[in-house]
């Protein structure tokens, strides 16, 4: 098997200001499928085409933002190995017992130097995508309910020490650098895009003075046409669009940034190239950062480096 170790982003847990409003938003506007609620009052969702029980979890809190972002690894043995490797690297880890999150196995949690809680886990119940594993159809009615992304895809995190965070992800967990934006000095990263797969990014980070902030969690769509359809659905529902539909220079994905009812930014995007670990990373210089982030506007909007939760 070529893909080993960390397989993919598995789940993100976000804070919202009004739970009922947010359940309706993520169910009917984003078009995720609700899969459960727990004793803590958390509500669990998955994208229609995902097979594991949950990928996006919300809870009510007095400030919005990201609680944790988690990656699925290929086996329990790998989970134990990564836990040991992280500790050997000097990182404090915490074991969270199986079942603390619904239908999810034991998790290893640690903080990266951007101030974010990252988790690894190996097991989550396969509930399927609503189709049989023998002779399935191409899609199901949920594929047309709301924006209806096919999966929770990646996150862009904002925090101070993106170098230290990148080193942990690369040196301990086997991620590789796909693209970067360099500041004026030509050596300091303003931002990095990292992959643990053949996706152009599984996680990205921007250097930012406040720790633990989230720019967005992204949901994948199948086509540019579905990105346009997502924009129509956002307007029908008076969803605040930050920018788009447009294209990123970095990763070349077509995109919309928009905000949930608590001000958490989310992305609905399509495309982006396939990357491989042997590929030379792409570098963007600060004078062309506008084209790198928003390929058509060729300028950052005010919100890109400022508006986070």
């Amino acid at each position: 098997m070529a893909m080993t170790g960390v397989l993919r982003p598995g789940h993100a847990q976000m804070r919202v200001l009004d739970l009922e409003e947010s359940i309706k938003f993520y169910s009917d506007v984003v078009g995720l499928v609700e899969t459960g609620r727990d004793a803590q009052g958390r509500v669990y969702f998955k994208a229609w085409d995902e097979r594991d029980h949950n990928s996006f979890i919300i809870r009510q809190a007095d400030k919005p933002g990201l609680d944790f972002f988690s990656f699925k690894v290929d086996s329990h043995a790998t989970l134990l190995k990564f836990d040991a490797d992280l500790q050997a690297y000097g990182i404090k880890t915490e074991r969270i017992p199986a079942g603390e999150l619904l239908e999810t196995g034991e998790r290893v949690r640690f903080m990266i130097p951007t101030g974010h809680q990252i988790e690894l886990y190996a097991e989550k119940t396969d509930v399927g995508n609503g189709q049989p594993y023998t002779n399935p159809e191409a899609w199901i009615p949920e594929a047309e309910h709301g924006i209806a992304p096919v999966r929770m895809d990646h996150a862009l995190l904002y925090g101070p020490d993106i170098d230290g965070a990148r080193d942990i992800l690369v040196n301990v967990l086997g991620f590789y650098l796909v693209e970067r934006i360099l500041l004026e000095d030509g050596k300091t990263d303003l931002a990095v895009w990292l992959s643990c797969s053949t996706k152009a990014h599984d996680i990205a980070m921007v250097r930012h003075p406040e720790p633990g902030k989230v720019h967005h969690v992204a949901f994948l769509l199948d086509s540019w046409e579905k990105v346009l359809r997502a924009a129509d659905i956002m307007s029908m529902n008076r969803v605040k669009i930050d920018i788009g539909p447009t294209r990123h220079g970095v990763t070349r994905g077509t995109t919309i940034y928009a905000f949930d009812p608590s001000g958490n930014r989310f992305e609905t995007f399509s495309g982006g190239y396939s990357s491989y670990p042997d590929w030379h990373p792409i570098t963007w210089t600060i004078d062309d950062v506008g084209r790198g982030i928003f390929y058509h506007d060729r300028a950052l909007n005010d919100a890109f480096l400022t508006v986070v939760t």
């Binding site: 200001l17 400030k63 605040k240 905000f259 608590s262 001000g263 919100a303 400022t306 939760t309």
Partner: peptide, 11 residues
């Protein structure tokens, strides 16, 4: 200043 428009970012 216009930010998240959801009571989250504070700008």
């Amino acid at each position: 200043p216009v930010g998240c428009c959801g009571g989250g970012c504070g700008v």
